[in-house]
Amino acid sequence: MDTTGVLDEALGRLHRSGPERLGRLTNHAPMAVEALAARGQARSVHRWLDLYAPRLEEFPAAVEPVTEAGWRTALGDPRRAADWIAHFGREIQEHPWRDVLAQWWPRLLPGMYGGSTHPVIRVGHAVRTLLAGDTTSPRLTELAHGLGYWAARHHTVTGLTPLPGGGSAAEALDAVKPLAVREGGFPARLDRVRGLPVWAATVPDPEEARRRLTELVRAATHRYATHGHGNETMLVHAATAPNAVLRTLPALPRDLWGQSLRAAWTASAAVTAMYAPDAPVPLAATCAVTAEEVAERALAHGDEHVIKLTDTALDFGDGTALAAALRAMELSEPLRR
């Protein structure tokens, strides 16, 4: 983890910007700079951020304060993003951040599908910094921004028909049936998801939930190496969204781990249904490339989704995971000014 202060400086720059741009696209910079810092690339954080800066927009205007009595009416209203961020900023100033997270996690978890799962991913990056290093003001503020964005984009998925699954996470992902109509953006496709395979419906033991969540993230990362061409950007989230949940588990009460696994599986499986290709490609033969070299290549490529998938792949570091990161670099457009 970065200990030079560069990450805090970068987050300070970013907290003047809003969580989205053009009214619908996510600001990925806070997640990407955290991933770069966590992977030993702190020296390049500001240079990368300078390239990304033209995509940032001003922080949105406030509407009215979120209150304990009226928070439910503000949930899922993207116009209230500034109100939600301010609310969590106050909460984290007044209470330990773990207590705030434990209170709001079960409230927000059913709506992790809003914002194309980016809000929970941002929270996962923020929690990693807090668990690994000092609880500095910029890092606490970043958690407030992530939680506020999640609350503003909160969107639930209900009424899914349970379908036959598989014994392993990889088999269950293979059992996901692609949508018959794969057109439109994330919200339109999500509305067409009617059923998903059962895999993580009842896992009462917290340690088993963590084991299975780890298995899911690994399987989704590996799957990208052969299926990422279905949509090089959106299929990244089949791995990074559940990994955000996995990274957050140590900060949560253990009695929340089972429901966290179920929500993460639903998100990963839904993204798979929405963007899976008609057929996989063979797994490319990997050259003798090290994890450090893959991290360097992701930085040189610069695309925010490449950086984040590489960050997840490096959590495992096996050949197939690294091949998935390299595949993302091959499929995605590099970041250029």
Rank of each mutant, 00 (worst) to 15 (best):
P54W: 00
I85A: 03
L326H: 04
A284W: 14
L14P: 01
L309G: 02
L246G: 06
A321C: 14
R39P: 01
A285C: 14
E68W: 04
L213W: 10
A180N: 09
S168L: 10
P250D: 10
F186Q: 03
R194K: 15
H118M: 04
T233P: 08
G76K: 03
M329W: 02
M329L: 12
P253I: 12
T214W: 13
L173Q: 00
R21C: 06
R192T: 06
T312A: 07
P277S: 06
V66D: 03
A172G: 03
R194W: 13
A273P: 03
L246W: 10
G18R: 01
M31F: 10
A270C: 11
A175L: 02
R262N: 12
C287M: 15
A86L: 11
L163N: 07
G76N: 07
T221L: 02
R128H: 12
V33P: 00
V100M: 02
A219I: 09
S332G: 12
R153T: 04
H227L: 15
G89D: 02
T310F: 04
R211D: 14
G89K: 00
W48D: 00
A29W: 01
P19N: 04
E68T: 08
E9I: 13
L49Y: 02
W48G: 00
G18C: 04
R192P: 01
R122G: 03
A38W: 10
E68M: 11
A180M: 13
R43F: 11
N27S: 01
R327I: 07
R153M: 10
G70Q: 08
E94V: 03
S137T: 15
A81N: 04
F186D: 02
P54T: 02
A238Y: 04
R98D: 05
P178I: 10
H46T: 11
V157L: 02
E91W: 00
H227R: 12
A180Q: 14
E9P: 01
L36A: 05
A219M: 09
H95Q: 13
Q259M: 14
A38N: 10
L130G: 03
L101P: 05
A323M: 11
E333L: 15
R13V: 07
V193N: 02
P119V: 07
